[in-house]
Design a binder for these strands. Sequence first.
RNA 1: GGGCCGUUAACUCAGUCGGUAGAGUAUCUGCCUUUUAAGCAGAGAGUCGUUGGUUCGAGUCCAACACGGCCCA
Length: 493
Amino acid sequence: MQDEPTLIRQRREKIRALRAAGIEPFANTFRPHHRVADLIAAYGHLDQGELEKLTATFSLAGRLMLLRQFGKATFFHLQDESGRLQGYIQRQEVGPEAYTFFKQLDLGDIIGLTGRLFRTKTNELTLAVQQFVLVTKAIQPLPEKYHGLTDVELRYRRRYVDLMVNPEVREVFRRRSRIIRFLRDFMDQRGFLEVETPMMQPIPGGATARPFQTYHNVLAMPLYLRIAPELYLKRLLVGGFQRVFEINRNFRNEGISTQHNPEFTMMEFYQAYAEYEDLMRLIEEMVAALAQDLYGTGRITYQGHEIDLTPPWRRLAMAEALTVVGQIPAEIVRDRQALIKLALEQGVTLRPSEGYGRAMAKLFDLHVEPKLIQPTFITAFPIEISPLSRRCQDDPELADRFELFIAGKEIANGFSELNDPEDQRQRFLKQVAAREAGNEEAHFMDEDFVLALEYGMPPAAGAGIGIDRLVMLLTDSPSIRDVILFPQLRPEG
RNA sequence: GGGCCGUUAACUCAGUCGGUAGAGUAUCUGCCUUUUAAGCAGAGAGUCGUUGGUUCGAGUCCAACACGGCCCA
């Protein structure tokens, strides 16, 4: 503390001086009656003559962001949640004492203003201050006014500063909120019931991933943060809800990258008496309507790529995609041994329990996924990597499953649900064997889930949409960390 | 896990061949009543990520480590 930077020390001294003068620097008494954007919307079109006739006074609260001081007058910008407005304060108007006090304020302080609107010589709508109060003193100085905060690490660690000084960051998170609200409305309009299922699960299921583990002291048992809500949502179908959805966090104990955060947001939904193709149509319609809602068009730009979200989207069977997009000859794709050999040659590692299906998926990741820029549904997944999907009637080695790719990213995953308890039990047993053989991502046996299926789950289809990636796509953000307010970081070094 | 890059004042960044640390913004002082990243004059502000090494001398060279970014697995 003794070696505190000068700037901070000066401001702490200012706080002491304020208190000594009887001014509380953290009072909670000022109540603004207006917001910047509302004033601009209501009066932004009036010229100076019209503003002069306006007798109303307005009160605003916000952060002091820019200062242009003269001897006896000061221009500044006040920033509230809705925007920025220029303010103008004259010594002649507020009196010498108040003006001297105003000059002692610092950039970043939160202030309350009361005044009238006028236009400056340069025709800028401005609040002429009649009264002001210091609402909250800022001890830490703001970043540089022109470049703002650009250090990526600092932006994530001090997101509050990032939000304060980088308007485009605020806009991303407003859009994120709007996207989630849109999805809720969309699902609600189609008769889906929003539900909440456990985040802490005794048996983590519903996805292929390593879970985070925790411990409940009183129950004296391990619990896992969920990797997916799937098995609980399906239990709700057993219970009689026919359309359910959940928007919430999943947790996966895996690597961090521009596409992965350990906790991420997923919308999962299940529809009884539907099959996967119904959900593909639903998702197409939903994402296109979402783009329309945000931008008034189905065409968006992501990292330089023009992407057309207008339905219908391309549909390709996985085997077909490997050939058509991945340039792997059809005879190799068809030949189980040849495909496994190719995968091994390309550095894919396969465990004893893994074979053709896994090889296919890995080759897909390498050669197809990055090239799927325009929205594409990949279908006909190997059953081996789809332990919760219904089998394809025409080919028991395939699952009635799809994944959606846009801009080279996996955005959604869905399938017709397996509702045969015997088949489900066998698939769990296969997963358990894989787990015992060392695959930490394999599923656990979930007896209660099988029991639920034994009561009868109506035929259904379900899907999950990665909300963070969808937000990235719709905000042209290159990293998942740009769309998560507080992304996971190591403690400061 | 591997490769490359980065880490210097509160922020944004320079720093040459190894020779006592620089700018702009912000802060402080003075001038300034229509500015727009206001202007002018002056001042203060540094554990150069950390630890070790080489050297008469290290922000600079070497090594390890920490944190971050990008790419790869």
